[in-house]
Design a protein around this nucleic acid. Structure first.
Lengths: 129, 129
DNA sequence: GTTGACCTTACTGTGACTGGAAGGTTTATT
DNA sequence: AATAAACCTTCCAGTCACAGTAAGGTCAAC
């Protein structure tokens, strides 16, 4: 299967697939006589795994770790658990921050009953420390 | 006042101040005989305004607009209102997305009772489409 | 034989900075 | 007066995860 077929199957852009290979997230692809990359079914699996991780906003470097860990099936999956926990933590912190931000923006949005820049309460609030 | 004083007063790194000048968010600073940038009180105001906007995650380009709008005090502040509304919208959408993500991560985090990579339910779930 | 859809590499740009190198100036201490 | 530290300057590279574009090679269909 050529790169655009793999792209379609996995929902990952060809460009992104080449990029993943470049940074070593994917192994170097086998090349046809014409120099085109040729992929197999196992490449689909690996790429879907990566895509799912990215959907969870796991950074590429950590995905590398997750892939490396899977080599030894008998090793502990503690690292995997920790990584997901850590990711969950990060997401929760971001949600908390954004919720505060939403409050501030909402207050700000409803603060200006005027229509001239000179009186604009929003702009005045933005000047405050 | 020199740049590090302005940085301390406004809580914006010197490096960032130079960057803002470079991209035209701040006007070119007056220079002393020795070539050092020299700032005044009005620079503090402007920089605090920018910092506040950044805290609200307003992009630098939009902050440029907000600054430009303030020149004519008699013009309508409709653009300001719209920009804040738009920002509020974006934040709410992000919160919604992250809340879904949190769910997924939480489910994933509690899915693996094993301790060997070969049986790891998390890894298996990540393989799924 | 030529069009169009692929494929390749290489380089640039994104946003909002941050880090570091290499060098000049000022201030404080010895 | 010498030296050290704490500033200041510009310029270039790096971050993250790609996306855009250019310039060129290949392949199948008409």
């Amino acid at each position: 299967m050529k790169i655009s077929q793999l792209a379609k199957t996995t929902n990952v852009a060809s460009k992104t697939i080449r990029y993943y290979e470049e940074i070593g997230l994917l192994p170097e692809a086998y090349r046809n006589d014409n120099g085109y990359r040729e992929y197999s079914a196992s490449d689909i699996e690996r790429l879907v795994f990566i895509r799912r991780c990215r959907e969870l906003q796991i950074p590429l470097e950590q995905i590398k770790t997750l892939i490396a860990v899977q080599v030894d099936q008998k090793s502990s999956c503690q690292e995997v658990d920790a990584l997901i926990d850590q990711q969950l933590d990060k997401v929760r912190k971001t949600i908390a921050e954004l919720t505060l931000l939403e409050q501030t923006l909402h207050t700000l949005a409803t603060s200006c009953p005027n229509d001239k820049v000179g009186d604009c309460q929003i702009l005045k609030n933005l000047q405050q420390e």
